[in-house]
């Protein structure tokens, strides 16, 4: 599964990167974030475009799993 590291990026960059990466990887991806705004915005975006999203804590941040 593709993984993108969006830690340290300010909003809305993690969402934009997620959007771009999903275009090339329609089956889903993992997004690493360390910012509360991104933790909420990335799953919200994924759900809005028809994916399922789950969030788990990882290394002081979060891993957002986006799947079909």
């Amino acid at each position: 599964m593709v993984e993108i590291d969006c830690r340290g990026l300010s909003c809305p960059e993690p969402v934009i990167k997620t959007k771009k990466t999903l275009k090339d990887n329609p089956e889903g991806l993992d997004v690493l974030v360390d910012d509360r705004a991104a933790r909420e915005n990335v799953p919200r975006y994924a759900e809005a475009v028809g994916y399922k999203a789950s969030v788990s804590e990882e290394g002081g941040g979060w891993r957002v799993k986006i799947r079909k």
Binding site: C11, P12, V15, I16, K19, R36, A37, E40, N41, R44, Y45, A48
Partner: peptide, 19 residues
């Protein structure tokens, strides 16, 4: 709530998010 005057308009333009 992360209220932001610019973010609302930005999110509509970029990702059609009206939150």
């Amino acid at each position: 709530t992360r209220l932001c005057m610019a973010g609302g308009i930005r999110d509509i333009i970029l990702i059609r998010d009206f939150t």
